[in-house]
Design a protein around this nucleic acid. Structure first.
Lengths: 205, 205
DNA sequence: ATTAATATTTTATTATAGTAAAATTCATAA
DNA sequence: TTATGAATTTTACTATAATAAAATATTAAT
């Protein structure tokens, strides 16, 4: 009985530590402090701008307490940053380069188009791709959608971009940025191979 | 006295509503519910995976209470998404295209290199750029750093990428992904004009 | 060195997130 | 239609974020 009671107390302590540890892993507190200092703001000024208390900002910056999403939003507004930027994805620092002849090909089930991956892997924030579509072909049989946004530039050929009910024609050198949640599809309407570069965030594959 | 007392009660109510309103604006609850359903998970299953209570997940999804960053992290892990993806930036849907002859040039103070913006503006998640550097020139006099990451592909010429204390050579067709917090600089070490495409998130200009 | 002003941290308290259990709702099978 | 089991929501309680005020630390001026 005493043995069990000791174990329960021990577990409770561990859970509490874990909570603060997770925040420390995200390095949220130090990110906020660094940003605040970069802006030459005192804790008092940030408190005023955000409508939060100085005490809390002090404790947050030193990872003493957790923070709600709402309060983090307020801090992001006061610091003039996008709240999503507090959450960082770190990419592998060893393997940076993809040589021309080392690109990974992504072949699709229902399309002859070919995507080539321009990053070593998909662990980063950006999916960087080279897309090759033969004349009359498209990147997919039907319009697809996913979270996020994507930017593309046509290096060669001519692309028809179907976006929802709208259509856009891209000539060589033209570029586009779309909201990827809108169903979309790319078709080569020229008579030569179309080559384009695409950057997508967050990654979809 | 009774007039003042009524006003105090009224203000308290308003502040509480505002807190939930901010979360509703972010549409966090519905994003979580949509994702959970897309994964064919019950609230009970998500609770088990995240180590949180069913009661809380129910209330979060319906925007009844706020949520701490730590708990949101746990939910993001259980749903298999990156926590930053819960925070969305919506781009303008009217103005998508940049024609070849309409690109905005970004000229730098301390460099002859030229960036051309491939998106209509900087309101999106991705900064998409075309970089032109003449032989022997670079994009900056010294290494710069900023938050986030960037991917690039060399379309023409040869680039030396200085990244912290390391150096990498990119030939035509090669691509790279770097952590932008590491000081970096790009130099054209070839004998023809270097042209490259870069995607940066979050935007730095 | 001292002093005063400001900035930050700590403390005791209040507000709200997060829980366990009960209540209600929903879906399905007979 | 009813009964049952599972899923979700609600409720009363616990844990922790967030506050106001006090205590402490820091900085600049003399």
């Amino acid at each position: 009985m005493g043995f069990i009671k000791n174990r329960i107390i021990k577990i409770e302590i561990k859970l509490a530590e874990k909570r603060v540890l997770e925040l420390r892993e995200m390095k949220l507190g130090s990110k906020i402090r660094d940003l605040r200092k970069k802006r030459n703001m005192t804790i008092k000024e940030l408190a005023e701008q955000s409508g939060l208390s100085t005490g809390m900002i002090s404790q947050i910056e030193r990872d003493k307490i957790g923070i709600s999403v709402t309060s983090l939003w307020k801090i992001s507004q006061a610091l003039g940053v996008f709240i999503g930027d507090f959450f960082d994805k770190k990419i592998c620092e060893n393997n940076l380069i993809v040589k021309k002849n080392q690109r990974k090909r992504i072949e699709l089930v229902n399309s002859n188009a070919v995507y080539e991956l321009l990053t070593p892997d998909l662990s980063g924030k950006i999916e960087f791709l080279r897309l090759v579509i033969e004349p009359g072909e498209s990147n997919d049989n039907e319009k697809i959608s996913h979270d996020g946004e994507e930017c593309g530039i046509v290096l060669q050929g001519k692309l028809l971009v179907k976006l929802g009910e709208k259509e856009y024609i891209l000539e060589e050198g033209d570029s586009i940025r779309i909201d990827s949640t809108i169903p979309h599809r790319y078709i080569n309407i020229g008579d030569i191979t179309s080559i384009s570069i695409w950057a997508i965030t967050p990654p979809k594959f």
